[in-house]
Design a protein around this nucleic acid. Structure first.
Length: 283
DNA sequence: AAACAGGCCTAAA
DNA sequence: TTTAGGCCTGTT
């Protein structure tokens, strides 16, 4: 086991000594929707700033960031302090998970903004990824703040207060369909304080989930995605259509309890989901 | 071109 | 408590 190191680089900050880290896998694992390929790396808008990261042999380059910025922003974002080696090893006692975790060995659970995750996964319901991305980009372009980066304009994710003040008609430009009313319910709850998003990471998983389920348009699956990708709740185990296929395919029709994977169910879910989707596993 | 999509809500048993 | 149908919009 080598140790992570962050050092200065002419072009930014360089993170090396990483194992179990692959940006391509991470950005293609369905947990984030605002990263795009950009030259030899990837560009995304995270917490109101444009970030550019470039894969390197045993880590990545954070373009234009200081070592300090890199440490403060990207260690949590990419979950770099968690020992994925140990988790894979433990999960691999299950033969299916041994295969899945080897296949997606560079996956990480991102720690994203909970508010952005609430809206993102509300929008994901009965939808395909390209369309989800389209809706989110139109939402940000219409109601986010412009950010200039290398002569291009990008947009931050809109604030809850901004969206809460809108009418469904004013949101029709994003073409979210029936999800618009759900989005507004979420925005109003957050804006007026009925829902305190800072609790999502603090409360025990079942209680945090209960809070989210009060939002219209948030069911069990969407709540689990929000908790896993936006609150670091590793007990969350979202089961969507792909996971249903994977579970019946690999584990049969017997009752399935995610607790079989121990305290890091959510990470197990990500390996299995990625494996099933990349292999187009059929139920 | 009809069916379906990374669900959820509501109504009805 | 479980189940069916509807839902905007886009794609296959």
């Amino acid at each position: 086991m080598i140790a992570m190191e962050i050092r200065e680089h002419p072009q930014g900050a360089q993170v090396c000594g990483l194992e179990h880290f692959n940006l391509e896998q991470i950005f293609d694992s369905g947990q984030c929707f605002r990263w795009q390929a950009d030259g030899d790396g990837y560009l995304g808008v995270v917490n109101g700033s444009v970030l550019r990261v470039v894969p390197q042999a045993d880590g990545f380059l954070a373009d234009g960031l200081t070592v300090r910025q890199c440490r403060e922003q990207l260690i949590p974002y990419f979950d770099l302090e968690r020992d994925y080696c140990a988790i894979c090893e433990s999960l691999s006692r299950d033969p299916v998970m041994a295969r899945a975790s080897a296949f997606g060995s560079g996956l990480r659970i991102l720690r994203q903004d909970p508010w952005e995750m609430v809206i993102t996964f509300i929008l994901s319901a009965a939808n395909h990824i390209p369309r989800i991305k389209g809706i989110i980009e139109r939402l940000c372009a219409a109601y986010g703040s412009p950010i200039s980066y290398r002569r291009e304009t990008y947009y931050s994710f809109p604030r809850a207060e901004t969206l809460a003040a809108l009418t469904p008609q004013e949101l029709s430009c994003i073409r979210a369909g029936f999800r618009t009313d759900y989005l507004l319910d979420a925005a109003r709850r957050v804006a007026d304080g009925r829902l305190d998003l800072s609790l999502l990471a603090q409360l025990p998983y079942p209680e945090a989930k209960r809070l989210l389920l009060e939002i219209k348009g948030v069911g069990v699956k969407v709540a689990d995605c929000i908790l896993l990708f936006g609150a670091g709740q590793m007990e969350a185990f979202p089961i969507d259509t792909w996971m249903k296929k994977a579970i019946s395919h690999f584990y049969g029709s017997a009752p399935f309890d995610p607790a079989r994977f121990g305290t890091h169910q959510g990470i197990a879910q990500q390996y299995l989901f990625y494996y099933a989707r990349e292999h187009k596993i059929a139920g």
